[in-house]
Design a binder for these strands. Structure first.
Lengths: 131, 131
DNA sequence: GAGAAAGTTTACGTTTACGTAAAGGTAAAG
DNA sequence: CTTTACCTTTACGTAAACGTAAACTTTCTC
């Protein structure tokens, strides 16, 4: 027997609304089984949902996430398609590397800002002491 | 003399529309000098714009970017405000660390996908050769 | 001084990613 | 048999981040 999930199972686990999950399905990012009307999610669906949310944390649109997730299992396997897919993958990787640099930059800025704050606190502490 | 920029200077340099730049001003992220009606941007304004765009690449909303940029120069310097500011800075840093993990994850997935593509190309090449 | 180039404001339009009701089906518990 | 909980579809509403068009001023350039 394979584990399955209801829509509210997933909404609870990932702290999102069922509305959002149905919306992702509407946009073609998920396609769960049905038992009558009700949606039944497999662990594969759950993984796809995790990937969608990871994409969101990285600022991707749903469409971009869909494209990327589709890259993970090459559908059309002729040479031309594989080559364009490799191209897309490398584009994505270079965008991720840009994001890495951006994170480093912002992290540095925040570290500096934090240091200035701590410095300011230190100074005001001394000020109080000298009164 | 200090270097200044026109709105189209900046729009060209960063490949964005003047509409976007005015929009950022409208939202309180920029506040350039005026010579009559025309906007005159300082190098500080230019830096702020760079920070805004970096924020966008990381998926931040304009409001979030505004908050973060404001963190860089502590305005109110009383102890309470400094402490809440330090709190916000640390929250941001932990979000950035999550993004780092996400990038590592996605980068790994893309590497694997690329490898499978290359593998598939290799196989098809052999197939051709054996004909 | 006439036209082109770049600037301005005002305002309505558009896409994305859902939120939020409305109106109900289904199934187990009491 | 009704309440309760969870599920469904349909559909209009909304915030963010601009795009786009209109109508006008300012400033070079010839």
């Amino acid at each position: 027997m394979t584990t399955t999930y209801s829509i509210s199972d997933l909404s609870r686990e990932f702290a999102i609304t069922t509305r959002a999950i149905r919306f992702y399905e509407d946009k073609g990012l998920l396609s769960p089984e049905r038992r009558g009307q009700a949606r039944i999610y497999s662990s594969g669906d759950r993984t796809r949902l995790k990937l969608i949310l990871r994409g969101k944390r990285l600022g991707l649109s749903l469409e971009e996430s869909r494209e990327i997730i589709d890259m993970y299992n090459p559908g059309g396997s002729n040479t031309g398609q594989l080559n364009t897919l490799i191209g897309k993958i490398r584009e994505r990787k270079s965008l991720l590397q840009q994001q890495l640099r951006d994170i480093e930059g912002m992290m540095g800025d925040l570290d500096a800002a934090e240091a200035r704050c701590l410095q300011a606190l230190q100074s005001s502490e001394n000020t109080v002491n000298t009164l």
